[in-house]
Amino acid sequence: MEPRMHNAEGERKGRVLIVDDEAQVRKPICLYLTKAGYEVVEAEDGSQAIKSLNSADNPLMVDTILCDIRMPKINGTEAVAYFRTQYPGIPVVVLTGYPDVDMAVSLMKQGVVDYLVKPVSKEELLTVIHRNVNRHTLFAEGFTV
């Protein structure tokens, strides 16, 4: 088990991977999460995200992936599929600017745990991240929910 980062209060938080091509989106989210004590890893696109996850000497243990599904290079949905197959333990939260019920359903079927529509408020974001990070933590600790 890897030593976890603790926030200033000593609370055990998690690591979040945020995947979005727009800086103006990543920036506020990163700042929220950081302020709330999470460790944030940023990726501009799916391939970057994968690279981060698979970094050789330090496999990054991410508790939640927050991913935009419309991106160049790798289609967001492809990225999600990759995450679910390669790292099924990591909960994926999809972040999108365009609400599409059909897409939501198909993503849920793929195992995406949650669905956020931009613009997302800080509160809503933190709630969802918190929920999912804890879940992972619980899993990681062997508890079954």
């Binding site: 989106v25 600017g97 613009p119 800080k122």
Partner: peptide, 12 residues
Amino acid sequence: HEINNPVQGIMG
């Protein structure tokens, strides 16, 4: 879709 990005930025 596209508008939501800058809106997210502003809101955030």
